[in-house]
Computed example of a mutant assay.
Amino acid sequence: MKKKLIPEFSLLCVAFIWGSTFVIVQNAISFLEPMTFNGVRFFLAGLILFGWLVLFKQKELGNFNKGLLFSGIIMGLWLFGGYALQTFGLLYTTSSKAGFITGLSVVLVPLFAYLILKQKPKPNAVIGVFIATVGLYFLTVGDTFGVNQGDVLVFFCAISFALHIIFTGKFSSLYSTLMLTVTQIFTVSILCFGSAFFFENWQVVFQVDVITKNEVLFALIITSLFATAIAFFIQTKFQKYTTPTRVALIFAMEPVFAALTGFVAANERLSITALFGCLFILGGMILAELPQKLRSHNSNLKYDMKTKES
């Protein structure tokens, strides 16, 4: 249990970083469009990690091979797919619905883990996933829901994020964490810039007055260092010590942290329904963490008490 505590707490910190930077990114993309922003963000993160690699981990450069390159590109493709599909989906749907549908990756991960990795989720994890999904609905959607083309795009975004978790778990134990993280981050950066070239006014990235705006500069520094370089390094390093289903449940806390950050930093109002949603997600995550032996012991204890009574 203690061996899992550090990796899973580290992954929870990643969810906190992503959730707490949501408001910062929202402010920045009003000046720099999403794909352009992410292109710069991931490029800077890649430079940070590559600089660390060259200065302090030169021996790991000898571990670079075609297998590592292929694995990093695959991880980067799914990660980019999640960001791109979510961005384009938001053109046609609301952020609340997009938040819920993206969160459905918590349901898709156990399914893909079983189909691709042949990992059967434990009963308490399945129940935790169901409870967390209900919580996501309460937190992000409330009592209104309908389906449009944006929702479909965001659903494919959820599939991409789910598969990113699956393949991170598959490849992270095979190759150098740092090299794998650098490869996937640069892959995302290249694909984001390519997407921006076709769909956005990417030239603004060369406008000094835009890049040096406080909102943009601050967001790029915080997200490239903490929400990208450090966060994806932590995910790649520690995901190998737990199951993809647990990772998905931990990452389901991201919208909870985003809601709490919005409440504290931007005075956004949290409804009673949203608060219930937060509690459901937290409850689902805690339930999935309960040892199976403890649940079995409690069930046996109840059975013994009933037997004595009869």
Results as ranks from 00 to 15, higher is better:
3 K>P: 02
5 L>H: 02
5 L>M: 12
6 I>S: 05
7 P>E: 01
9 F>Y: 00
10 S>Q: 05
11 L>M: 04
15 A>M: 05
17 I>V: 06
20 S>C: 04
22 F>E: 12
25 V>Q: 13
26 Q>M: 09
27 N>Q: 15
35 M>Q: 13
36 T>R: 01
36 T>V: 00
37 F>E: 12
46 G>A: 07
48 I>M: 11
48 I>W: 13
51 G>R: 06
51 G>I: 05
53 L>M: 14
58 Q>S: 06
60 E>S: 00
61 L>F: 04
61 L>M: 10
62 G>P: 00
63 N>A: 10
64 F>K: 13
67 G>K: 15
69 L>I: 14
70 F>P: 10
72 G>K: 15
76 G>E: 07
85 L>A: 04
90 L>V: 03
94 T>D: 11
100 F>L: 09
107 V>L: 07
109 V>K: 12
110 P>I: 09
117 L>K: 14
119 Q>L: 14
124 N>L: 09
125 A>F: 02
127 I>T: 13
130 F>A: 14
136 L>E: 08
137 Y>W: 14
138 F>G: 07
142 G>T: 08
143 D>Y: 10
148 N>D: 02
149 Q>A: 00
153 L>E: 00
153 L>T: 10
154 V>D: 04
159 I>E: 03
160 S>V: 04
160 S>H: 07
162 A>E: 00
163 L>F: 03
163 L>Y: 03
166 I>E: 05
166 I>T: 09
173 S>Y: 09
178 L>R: 11
184 Q>S: 08
185 I>Q: 07
186 F>M: 03
188 V>G: 10
191 L>M: 04
191 L>Y: 02
193 F>I: 10
195 S>H: 06
196 A>V: 09
199 F>C: 01
200 E>L: 00
200 E>P: 07
200 E>N: 00
203 Q>S: 10
206 F>V: 00
209 D>S: 12
214 N>Q: 11
217 L>T: 10
218 F>K: 15
221 I>H: 10
221 I>T: 06
222 I>G: 01
223 T>G: 08
225 L>S: 14
226 F>H: 07
228 T>V: 06
235 Q>M: 09
236 T>D: 03
236 T>A: 07
239 Q>K: 08
243 T>D: 09
243 T>R: 02
248 A>F: 02
251 F>A: 01
254 E>G: 05
256 V>G: 01
260 L>K: 09
261 T>Q: 05
261 T>K: 12
264 V>S: 00
264 V>Q: 08
271 S>Q: 06
272 I>A: 11
273 T>R: 03
273 T>N: 07
274 A>E: 15
275 L>W: 12
275 L>I: 15
277 G>T: 04
277 G>W: 11
279 L>F: 13
295 R>F: 11
298 N>V: 11
299 S>N: 13
306 K>Q: 13
307 T>A: 11
307 T>D: 05
308 K>L: 12
308 K>W: 12
